[in-house]
Design a protein around this nucleic acid. Structure first.
Lengths: 138, 138
DNA sequence: TTTCTAGTTTATAATCATTCTAAATTAGAA
DNA sequence: TTCTAATTTAGAATGATTATAAACTAGAAA
C-alpha cells in the first residue's frame, strides 16, 4: 500500500504543474513523510536550504506552495497574524495550536463531537467550520 | 440599566490608562453602540478620520487598540493573514465570517452545541476553543 | 496657579511577510 | 536540435505593523 518511491512527476503533471527540480524537491520534503506535516513558509525555506547545496529561491517556495494549495495538496491554517501555517493533511479536520512551542497538532474529525449550530444566517450558506483549540504547557 | 453617558474616564483610569482626548474619542466610537462592533484597524482609522476635523494618528490607533485589548476591552479575531479583526464583545463566543462582504458576525455560545473533544494532549491544558464558520452568499 | 515629570501622541523610519516584475533559465513538444 | 511557453530567480514594491525619538500633555506636587 505504501509507495516506496512516490511518483511526484505524475502527481504534478496531473495538476498541470511542470515537474521541475524545485517542485519535486519540495514534494519530497513535504510529502515523503509518515505523518502529516505542518509548516510555515519560513520553516520550509530553511529546511530546504539546510539539506541542499543549491537552494530554492524564496519566491519559488511561495509560488510552489500556493500552486500546491490551489491544486489541493495543502490546506492553509491561520492561527493569528504572525503564524500562517500550511498542512499536508487535506482531509476535513481541526487543530490544536500549542502556544508554548508554536506547534500545530491535528484534531481529527472523529476526535470531536459533531459541531451543531442552532443559528443560521439568512441568504448565506456555510463554506467551512473550523475549530481551533489553543493549548499551553501545564 | 443603560448608561446615558458612559464614563469612559473612569473606565480608562481603572486600567491605568490616562484618559486622553484620543482614547476617549476611540472609546466613544467603539463602545457607544447598541450592538457589538467588529472592525479592523483600518476601518477604525477611517471612521475616526471621517467624523472629526483633527485626526488621531495611525500609531495612536494601534497603540490604543492594543492597550484596550490588553485591558480586556476588546478581543482579537484572526480570520486569515489579510483580515485581522477586533471585537467589542469580550464574552466567550464564536464567529461567522461572511467572505462575500468580509463581515464578522457573532455566534453566541448558546447558538452552538457544546464542543466536546475526545482527545487531549498530555502535559497541555486548554486555553481557548474557537469556532469559525465561513459563509458566502447563496 | 505654576512647575515638573512621566505618560502619551505623533510623524516618520524600520521591519517583516508577502507579492510583483522582468530578465534568465528550462521543460518538453515539434 | 530548436523553439516557445512555463518556471525560476533576485531584487523591488507593497502593505500591515512596530519602533523611534521628539513634541506634547495630564495631573501630581509645590
Amino acid at each position: 500500500m505504501t509507495q516506496k518511491t512516490p511518483n511526484y512527476i505524475t502527481k504534478l503533471r496531473n495538476s498541470n504543474l511542470r515537474p521541475t527540480k524545485q517542485r519535486i524537491k519540495i514534494c519530497e520534503v513535504l510529502f515523503n513523510r509518515p505523518k502529516t506535516f505542518h509548516f510555515t513558509i519560513n520553516n520550509l525555506y530553511k529546511l530546504l536550504s539546510d539539506n541542499s547545496e543549491k537552494k530554492i529561491s524564496l519566491a519559488t517556495v511561495y509560488n510552489t506552495i500556493h500552486a500546491f494549495k490551489k491544486s489541493g495538496y495543502l490546506k492553509q491554517v491561520n492561527i493569528d497574524s504572525s503564524n500562517n501555517y500550511f498542512d499536508t493533511n487535506t482531509s476535513h479536520h481541526h487543530h490544536f495550536f500549542d502556544e508554548t512551542n508554536n506547534e500545530l497538532i491535528d484534531l481529527n474529525n472523529e476526535d470531536i463531537k459533531k459541531i451543531e449550530l442552532k443559528k443560521n444566517i439568512p441568504g448565506k450558506k456555510i463554506k467551512s467550520v473550523e475549530v481551533l483549540v489553543k493549548i499551553v504547557s501545564k
